[in-house]
Design a protein around this nucleic acid. Sequence first.
DNA 1: AAATACGCTTGATTAAAATCAATCTACTTC
DNA 2: GAAGTAGATTGATTTTAATCAAGCGTATTT
Lengths: 195, 195
Amino acid sequence: MQNFQALYDYIEKLTGKMLSVDDKQVFTAHFKPNKIRKRQYFLQEGDVCKYTGFIVKGAAKTYTVDEKGNEHILKLSVEDWWLADFESFYKLTPSRFNIEALEDMEILQITHASVEEFIKPIPAFTSMQNVLSQNNTIAAQKRMQSSISQTGEERFQELVNDYPHFIQRFPQNLIASYLGLTPETLSRIRKSSSK
Amino acid sequence: MQNFQALYDYIEKLTGKMLSVDDKQVFTAHFKPNKIRKRQYFLQEGDVCKYTGFIVKGAAKTYTVDEKGNEHILKLSVEDWWLADFESFYKLTPSRFNIEALEDMEILQITHASVEEFIKPIPAFTSMQNVLSQNNTIAAQKRMQSSISQTGEERFQELVNDYPHFIQRFPQNLIASYLGLTPETLSRIRKSSSK
DNA sequence: AAATACGCTTGATTAAAATCAATCTACTTC
DNA sequence: GAAGTAGATTGATTTTAATCAAGCGTATTT
């Protein structure tokens, strides 16, 4: 299963630990491959996020819609990222977010209960979780710091530095929303900073 | 040691697991009590964050200073919170942040190496880390979502709801900075929203 | 007690970003 | 191929927040 190979490679690379044949057996038994077509939802506001998905192929946006009908993009996710509203996923509460495919996607999905029961006993997996927890903490801190202390232009430059492929891959209106800006403002920022 | 009792209570309450006498022995052997006076630094920009500290008493701010000399508060921390720049703490890189006591503090501090070697084997501690990891993920997501999609006024209201004691305990200029606003703007927001 | 520092408020002005509106282009889709 | 849609850009205007400046009250310090 080439789908699963992407997950194995990811875990082994991130943790430096090798998965045994038995480990892989557990993964194939409990992760379910799923395809999500462009513009389809992985999660809709009000629903409980029953699955977390490892993205083998494709991209998605996690966003809210405010009372005026404007979208606000909290997260853009691509290959080798985990897809979920973790608040809803951990607590089994209705989500405030929508998660929608921006491209046709292939994911490997699993429920919280299955992770706890079958996947957590695999040392490489808990090791992965620890690494991800640290990375998340650091990334969240950095993004928050940008958000409170930098201008739109500085935040955009940081995004270009940190995730250059995002700029190539996603339309500017999504990038703008991710940065907390309107598309018009980002367009003007790009124009003035290119001079 | 009544200092340590606060830590034990915290872990037991958060995880639902009891600490054995031996466990507590390990804690007292490796966590070092430390007092930090108001206006003193737990961490200064450019230094490596060698310790993480459990706050037994007092409060602190984590902030950066921009090129204009303005402070931007990333975090306000009180009793039962962990104090560190985790990026610097995990990676042993120089920190971009300052952490300064807002009140006289009592903390229990420990190095990353000691955590890994002595504290992580304690099941209740790793269990605590898992809970904290989840809570952090959720809180970071929520704060980020506020930041990109809500006005200053809405963010302030959310803070009042989520952390009412912060409003009592910290001066408004710090609250403003935490929200990414100037003190003047927060003052005007409060004035207009009280009507 | 006087002096100082700190925090909060208010006013006037400037700067940044949002909003509203129109146009243009490149893709889909039928 | 025509029609429709999505995304980007530009202009004019409004809204929001930052900045600059002053004044006031309350702690804190000496």
